[in-house]
Every structure is written in structure tokens, then in C-alpha cells.
């Protein structure tokens, strides 16, 4: 195998991991605030569909990205209302959101499947950096959404660990009663971060349909929303580790495509079924490693994750 094989694989991994990156960082914000949102897959699908539809109808991919973000935010608002205000079960509500998003995107997007192309987000080489051998092709010859992903991860990290609002965010996910005593409006902030998570998931979907695989297909996320949720645990709720994981998963998702043109795979096409299982199997492995109790503690699972907060029950 040649160097170019790996350069292509890593470059493709970074490109296709960008959707998971946006979604998982969004989920980190929601979970850090104490709200689990299993609706990521549904929000991504609605984001992907509306982004593609908007770009096709208006000719403006940026408008598509915006609409996807708003759509993701609106769906997340529903989840926030049901789980924070009505205090319903977060797991069930999130699942319902995924199903509604999947069904709705299939129905509303049915007419878009014949649309072969819509305007894409622009891709460009970053001057000078793109010319560095090996590093250039891997990192600096991408779509703009990929570069936005490069910025998002460190910004999210800085926000969570180095700013005052980030400290409050961590507090409401760890010990909401204490945060409340400090004068933080726990539920208002939870609304905010759940919606922020939805906005990012919607943008992740848009990254798919406007840049990574620029078209609309029913169920095109193929489980990436779920992979993003699994990744959050593995990343220990840390955006930088989530970014690393996302690119790794991007590469694993991409691997079957690169492998299938190798002679040995051409002779054994059935192997493709098994290489295609890799991202899903890998998610399970990652989950198994990340879920062991001691590991969860060390990795910093937000203590109040999954629990609604009600002031009258404070101190419980």
C-alpha cells in the first residue's frame, strides 16, 4: 500500500467526519447541561433535507445551512419543552424526536430525491498550507464546512473549560441545585444548550447534504447521529476528544470505499458487507470501553445527566 492511500483515507476521514463532529459537539453542550437528547439522528436528517431543499430552491447554500440550523434548533426546542418543562422521560422524548425527524424528512423530502444537484458550500485550498506535502492534502484542501469544524472544536473547548458561562454550564449538569443557589437559572440555561445542540446537529446534517455527499437521500445519515451520541461518552464530554473521534469515525466510514478497489476486495466483493459493519461495530466497542463505571467517573459524565430539575425538590 502506498502513502497516497493513507493520505486520501485521512483526508476523506476528516471530510466525512465533519458531520459527526458538529452533531457530537452539539450533544456535548446538551448533555453537559444535564439533558440527554437522543433525537440527534432526526435533527440531522431534517437539517440535511431542509438544507438541500433550500439550496436547491434559492440557489444559495448558505441560506440552506441557516435553515438547517434553525430547523435543528426548533426540533431541539420541542425536546427541551417536553423534558425540561413537562419533565417527561428524556430517553423516550429523544427517541420520539428521532422518529418524527426521520419520518418527516422522508415525506417532505420525497420530491427532492430526483433533484440531482443543488449548489454546494464552497471548497477551497488554504493558501500556502495546502501546498505542504502530506499535511496539506489531509488538512487544507477541503470544503469550508470542514474548516468551520476545525474552528468549532477548540472554540467549544475554550467556552466550556475557560469561560464563566462554561463554568455555569458544567455546574448545571453536575449539581443543578448548587447552581440554582448561585443565582443561575437552571432551566433557562438548559433550554439554551439543548437548542444550541439542535442547531449544531442541524448544521451537521447540512454538512452532509451540502458538502460531504451533496444530495438528499431518505435516511442518508445512516446512523451517524447515533454514532455521535456514542462518541460523546467516549470523548468524556470533551469537544477536542470528540473532534479526534469524529475524524477517526469518518475514516472508518470511508475505509470500505477505499478498500473495495483493492484487487483482493475486487475478487471478494462480499467482504464489503463486513467492512461496512466497521463503524457500527466500532461504536459498540467505544461504548463498551467508555461505559464502565470507573471509566465514566474518570471521564467526567455530568452527574445530573438525564434528571429533570425542579426547584421544589431541591436538595434531593
Amino acid at each position: 500500500m502506498e502513502l497516497v492511500f493513507f493520505v486520501n483515507l485521512f483526508a476523506a476521514g476528516i471530510r466525512s467526519g465533519t458531520a459527526i463532529l458538529f452533531a457530537s459537539i452539539g450533544e456535548i453542550f446538551a448533555e453537559r447541561a444535564g439533558v440527554l437528547n437522543l433525537g440527534v439522528e432526526g435533527m440531522m436528517l431534517m437539517g440535511a433535507m431542509t438544507a438541500f431543499g433550500t439550496a436547491h430552491a434559492t440557489g444559495n447554500p448558505w441560506l440552506g445551512l441557516l435553515v438547517a440550523a434553525v430547523m435543528g434548533g426548533l426540533l431541539a426546542l420541542l425536546h427541551a419543552f417536553v423534558t425540561i418543562t413537562l419533565r417527561a422521560d428524556q430517553v423516550v422524548s429523544g427517541l420520539a424526536l428521532t422518529f418524527v425527524g426521520t419520518g418527516l424528512s422522508a415525506v417532505l423530502g420525497a420530491g427532492l430525491i430526483e433533484v440531482r444537484t443543488a449548489p454546494r458550500l464552497p471548497a477551497f485550498h488554504i493558501p500556502l498550507l495546502a501546498d505542504i506535502p502530506i499535511v496539506g492534502p489531509i488538512f487544507f484542501q477541503h470544503n469550508i464546512i470542514v474548516y468551520l469544524g476545525f474552528l468549532l472544536a477548540p472554540l467549544a473547548w475554550f467556552y466550556i473549560y475557560r469561560t464563566r458561562p462554561g463554568l455555569e454550564l458544567r455546574a448545571i449538569g453536575e449539581y443543578p441545585a448548587a447552581a440554582d443557589v448561585q443565582g443561575i437559572n437552571v432551566n433557562a440555561q438548559r433550554y439554551l444548550y439543548v437548542i444550541a445542540g439542535g442547531v449544531l446537529a442541524g448544521m451537521g446534517g447540512a454538512a452532509l447534504s451540502l458538502a460531504i455527499t451533496p444530495l438528499w437521500l431518505e435516511g442518508m445519515t445512516a446512523g451517524q447521529g447515533w454514532i455521535a451520541i456514542g462518541l460523546v461518552i467516549f470523548a468524556g464530554w470533551n469537544p477536542l476528544r470528540a473532534a479526534l473521534g469524529s475524524y477517526l469515525f469518518g475514516a472508518i466510514r470511508r475505509l470500505p470505499l477505499d478498500l473495495q478497489i483493492l484487487p483482493i476486495f475486487l475478487r471478494n466483493p462480499t467482504w464489503g458487507y463486513f467492512t461496512n459493519m466497521l463503524p457500527y461495530l466500532f461504536t459498540i466497542i467505544v461504548l463498551v470501553i467508555g461505559s464502565r463505571e470507573a471509566m465514566r467517573k474518570r471521564m467526567g459524565s455530568p452527574a445530573a445527566l438525564g434528571q429533570p430539575y425542579a426547584r421544589e425538590e431541591r436538595g434531593a
Binding site: G223, G230, Y280, I284, L287, S291, R296
Partner: peptide, 14 residues
């Protein structure tokens, strides 16, 4: 291992 059944079952669907 404590791996949550929701994600595991969904991955096993694929």
C-alpha cells in the same frame, strides 16, 4: 459493561 442498550441495539440493526 454498562453499555446502554439503546445505542447498542441501533448499531446492531445496521
Amino acid at each position: 459493561t454498562g453499555a446502554h442498550e439503546v445505542i447498542v441495539t441501533i448499531m446492531l440493526n445496521y
